[in-house]
Every structure is written in structure tokens, then in C-alpha cells.
Design a protein around this nucleic acid. Structure first.
Lengths: 340, 340
DNA sequence: CCGAGCTGCTGAACCGGATAAGTAAAATTG
DNA sequence: CAATTTTACTTATCCGGTTCAGCAGCTCGG
């Protein structure tokens, strides 16, 4: 049994292909009686319009693209992306849009993917994540006139629409909180240094520490993986100026750091306070529960998706700020045991 | 500047559209000289074939679909899917195939997605995950003649090709190991009861416990979330016949369980041994590190993808077994403190 | 040296929808 | 009631590829 086409419906209804097309798309040009008859037949034989045929007649692909550039090892257990995708999906499926996903190895591969998707008209637009310093992708999407929304910013995004969080405010709030508790040696386990948001957080951290008289022991860069988070923690805790508090750039590293502290015989929060950037249920479930900077990541993804769809529809969209991450104090932060 | 088409190339090269098509697709029918000239022009003007036009002429969509039916809350932080997707992606992108992803709320929505994808010819086939008892999706893909590979089984999959792990063997190995350590009260925190693999694990667990004289305290069903894993653990540890070892159906619940044990003042592994089904870096990073049943999930995904592509290509594919999960003993399992 | 077979191309049909243009009949208008 | 507009269609064309049939011109065997 072949897949039904409008020609089949036309034959069954005794009308022309054109009439069927009008009827199915709610265009005027057919009587209400005929429309109903055609719709009934379409329903009965299980008709679905061939997306390619539609696309060929100039329709949109009704698909947006998302290329993620992280090694499988990191992606696998970092909740951020999955939550982001959930949010994006929720928005898209409510509007009959599909999501095309591709995991890429490096920047060149990602750019190739954009070119191909656009050239083959597979997607109407893309979400660009993990904005880097001097990111070549901005120029590519601009050149291609490929509708895009950057998830990140506000620095480093020229005129491309973007949705962003004010990470600086979140970092400052955290440092102020830790300083108020009495911490004077705060370290930071940061993510990839060439990501814009890492840079933004770093500069906010430096500024807040200086202002509050915190001798921040060290900032250690990582690739966001738990392994590197653990290694960075070992280094910090074995060093000369052992910090009394550590801020981790994601939840996975924070949990790994907690494990290291326990392994080294330090009590949390007595000997070491821990704060995680980004909250996941695990932060609540480990013992002690981790103080975290929470944000609604699915909502963030949904916002980005909504914006991309607006951009695709040709509406003027600019920069939109999502709610800042909120500090949720839990059991992993307290006054330090030893006053400096 | 309009998107270039083969007609543009034909005009520039002074040949017909047909010749260009032959040249680009490596068909015979053009001389080597002409082919090279055409390819050069195509390269220069940045030509990409319009995927819809191709698809309309009967070509494949070069896309496979994956619909996931888990609430965002669970998906977000369960590493399994992201790792699976990474593996699927690795295989697909190496072969120029794309992945269409959709997160759905329930079985009906998932079936609708399959129907639509197939009707609109958006995908060439689908991966079916989370096989349930009496799963209606099997009948749907069979009816539609939609090429599909089930990730799961071997029970409950009629004649649909599938890739599977022998979870029973893994569970038995684990129970034998715990029994050999001296455990006689082993509990199990299980996943969703209507998933086939939960059922398979449950029956293997029961069998092994009976054979080895283990009075398994209790099996508690959950939705795989950390919250429920924590709650189940509290229930087990507060009950009358407190288990000396617990097997968790995923890593997230195992980590949550570890947190609960610590919160209740029990030492791990002294008072309680913990085993996680599925390993993630976090299992190695918490303290104590968790004994886990490891399997290479990206490889599992890649295998499934490879199989689906073979099925789409019309090759006869049947059931394929992926390597069984291996027990990796770490610090969370030991002899129980108190001999029963 | 002539027909058969091959090479290298052209022209046109085709895939399945969308849509502009054309047309006959019905409804409205003056 | 004739003229005009509207309704309800049909016909034809287009989108951008693929592919089949056709057709020169060349090569080659007998």
C-alpha cells in the first residue's frame, strides 16, 4: 500500500489536486461541503503531507538545528544540556516544530554542519550554544543569513539575537554571601577558559573578591568534567593557602569536589564550604546537600526556542535577559571553622 | 544572493541540468573532464543540494528519529540518554545521517510522532527505547512498515530488530558477589515496573536470591529519579529487616541512596553496601566511590544506530546482543559489619 | 565500409505539494 | 433581465532535484 498523496484524495473525492490542497490548508476556494468531504477522506486514508514536497514549494522546514560541541564524555553526565534540550523541545513540539540535533567535535565541524543544514534547507534556524571568545560561528550565521539565536552573551555577540543570564550578578551574590559568613580564602574551579561566560564569571569573581577583601586563593580552569573538578579540588586543598570555600562552575564538579574533600578527611561545611553553579537534583541528594546557584534551565531553553522562532518569522528580536541564577543555601556552606 | 541550484551550475558550465546531476552524484554519463569542471563550479559557488528536492525524487531523508518519553525532570540528570545519544550521533554523523529528536509526554504522543514522521517522510526509521510490557509501539511500527530498531529486549519485541543487554546475567553476578561477601539481606531499588528490563532484572534478582539463600528484604519501585531513590532508601533503612546491601537500578538513585545513608549516620560500606546499575563518572567521584555495573552506553547507541541503518538499507537484521554490563567493585561494597 | 555498441550529452517527465491564472455557473446588483 | 461580481472549482506551472529516453558522434569488429 503506497503512501497516500493529495492526488489519491482528489481521485476519491472526484475533484482536482488543487481543490484538495485548498481544502486541506483552509484556503478559500472550495465550498464547505466539499471541504468536509475532502477532510473526511484524508482522515480516513491516513493522509500526511509529504514534508519534502511542501518544502520544495517554498514552505519552511519547520525544524530548528542544535549542534553541540562537547566530547561525549562530558555531555553524558552534564545535566545542563539535557535540561536545555527538554525546554527547547517543549516549546518546539507545542508549535509543531522539530529539533535536529548533532554532536560535533570542533568548531570547524560545527560550522560545516551549519552550512550544510542551511544549504540543504533542513533547518529554518539554529541555536548557538557555548559562545567563545572570538567565536567564528557568529560571522558564519550572519554571512549565511541563517536565523540564529545565541544562548549566551551579552558580550561577544555582535548583532545576533541572544538570550542570556547575568552570571556576574550571581557570582557577586555568592562571594558576598561567603564573605559575610567569614570566608576570606575563596577559590574557584572554573570551566573552559575560552567560553565567554567563564570569562564573565572570572572577572566578576575577581572584582567581588577585591572589593570585599577576599584573598582568593586560586582559580583553576577545567573542562567541566568531574575528573578535572576532582583534580582541581585536590590541588587546591593540598596547596599552601588552602581555601575555606570553593565555587564550582557546574554541579558535576561540585559533587566531585565534595567527594575529594571527604576522601581527604575534611568536613563539609566545617573545613570547606562548597557552592555549585547550576543546580541539579543531585545537589540536593548528596550529603551534605550542596548550596547552589539555581536557574530554570528548561525555561531558559524554552525562551531561546521562542526567540528563535520569532526570528525565523522575521520579527525583530534582540537581546533578552533570562532570570539571574538564585543562590540557594543548603548544608554545604557555613562559617569556616578556623577564623583566618 | 539566491541559494544556488543545479540549474545555476548548469548555466555556468554550459551543460544541462541532467549532466550536472550525473556529475555530482558520481554517475556515469559525463566525461571526467566535464565532471571535474562541474564539481569545481559547484565548490566555488557553495552548492548544496536541496534535501527536499532530493527527497521528493524518492531519495531517503537521511534522518533517523528518536522520541524519548520521560519527563524533563528525570531526563535532565539521567546520564544514560545523553550518552546513548552521543553514541548514536557518532555513528550517524560518520555516515552523513541526521538525528531528529523529540521528547514526548506519553505513549500516545510518541505514536503520533512516529505516524507524523513517517507520513511526512521526515525520517527513514526510528529507534524505540524503554520497551514496556505490552508496548503498543511495536504494533505501530510494524503496521506502518517504519524501519525500527528497539533498544531493549529480548522479551516483548516480536519480530522487530533489537539490540539488547543481558541484564539478568549482570544482576545474578551482582547478587552472587554480595552473597559471597556475606550479605544475606539484599534489597533492590528498582525502576519503572512496566519497563521490560525492570521486569527482567526483578526476576533474575528473585531467582538468584532464592538460589543463594538470600532473604531479600524488599524491592521498591521508583521512577528512576533521585528523589524517589532517596525516599526508597529511607524506607528500606528504617524498616524492620534493614538490608545490608542495596542494588539500585541506576546511578542517580545510588548516589542519592549514598546521601541518605550518610544522613542517617550509617557508614558505607560498613553498615550498608551499595551497587549502582549503570556507571557514570559521578560513581567514581563520590566518596566512597560506588561499585557499579558498567557498560559502554555510547557503544550501545552506536550499535543500535548501525543496526537501524542496516535495517533501513533493507538488510535482514535480527536480534543483536551487546556486551553484558560488568561489575566493577569499588569502595562502596564490603563484608557487612554485623554477621546475620 | 557499414551497422552495432559505446560515450557523452540533451530534453522532458516526474516526485507531491502550493498557487496563480483561467473558467463556468451561481449569486448579486442596478 | 442583462451586467457584474462572486463562488467553486480546474488547469497549468513551479519548486529543485533525479532519471529515463533519445540522439549525435565516435570506435570498432567483421
Amino acid at each position: 500500500m503506497k503512501r497516500p498523496t493529495i492526488a489519491d484524495i482528489a481521485a476519491l473525492a472526484g475533484v482536482s489536486k488543487g481543490a484538495v490542497s485548498y481544502a486541506l490548508n483552509g484556503q478559500r476556494g472550495v465550498s464547505e461541503t466539499t471541504r468536509r468531504r475532502i477532510l473526511a477522506i484524508a482522515e480516513e486514508i491516513g493522509f500526511n503531507p509529504h514534508s519534502a514536497a511542501r518544502a520544495l514549494s517554498g514552505a519552511a522546514a519547520d525544524t530548528i538545528g542544535l549542534a553541540l560541541r562537547r566530547p561525549a564524555r562530558v555531555l553524558g553526565f552534564e545535566p545542563f544540556y539535557m535540561e536545555l534540550i527538554s525546554g527547547v523541545e517543549a516549546e518546539l513540539s507545542a508549535r509543531g516544530q522539530a529539533l535536529m540535533l548533532q554532536i560535533v567535535a570542533d568548531a570547524d565541524a560545527e560550522i560545516d554542519v551549519y552550512r550544510r543544514w542551511w544549504g540543504e534547507r533542513r533547518v529554518d534556524g539554529v541555536l548557538v550554544c557555548d559562545l567563545r571568545v572570538g567565536d567564528p560561528r557568529i560571522a558564519v550565521v550572519t554571512d549565511l543569513r541563517l536565523p540564529a539565536v545565541v544562548v549566551g552573551g551579552p558580550d561577544g555577540v555582535d548583532d545576533v539575537p541572544h538570550v542570556w543570564n547575568d552570571d556576574a550578578v550571581a557570582v557577586i551574590e555568592t562571594v558576598e554571601y561567603l564573605a559575610a559568613l567569614g570566608h576570606r580564602q575563596i577559590a574557584r574551579v572554573a570551566g573552559l577558559p575560552d567560553l565567554w561566560h567563564t570569562r564573565i564569571r572570572a572577572s566578576a569573581f575577581r572584582g567581588a573578591c577585591e572589593r570585599l577583601g577576599v584573598r582568593h586563593a586560586l582559580t583553576v580552569g577545567t573542562d567541566y568534567s568531574g575528573e578535572e573538578g576532582a583534580r582541581a579540588t585536590r590541588r587546591l586543598l593540598s596547596g599552601e593557602h588552602r581555601p575555606t570555600a570553593v565555587i564550582y562552575d557546574n554541579d558535576v564538579m561540585a559533587i566531585a569536589g565534595l567527594g575529594v574533600a571527604q576522601e581527604m578527611g575534611l568536613t563539609v561545611p566545617g573545613d570547606l564550604s562548597i557552592v555549585a553553579f547550576d543546580d541539579s537534583p543531585l545537589c540536593r541528594l548528596v550529603h551534605p546537600a550542596l548550596t547552589a546557584l539555581t536557574r530554570d534551565i528548561p525555561a531558559y531553553g524554552a525562551l531561546a526556542a521562542r526567540h528563535l522562532l520569532a526570528a525565523i518569522a522575521g520579527q525583530p528580536v534582540g537581546s533578552v535577559e533570562a532570570p539571574t541564577a538564585k543562590l540557594v543555601p543548603r548544608a554545604s556552606t557555613a562559617r569556616p571553622n578556623t577564623a583566618t
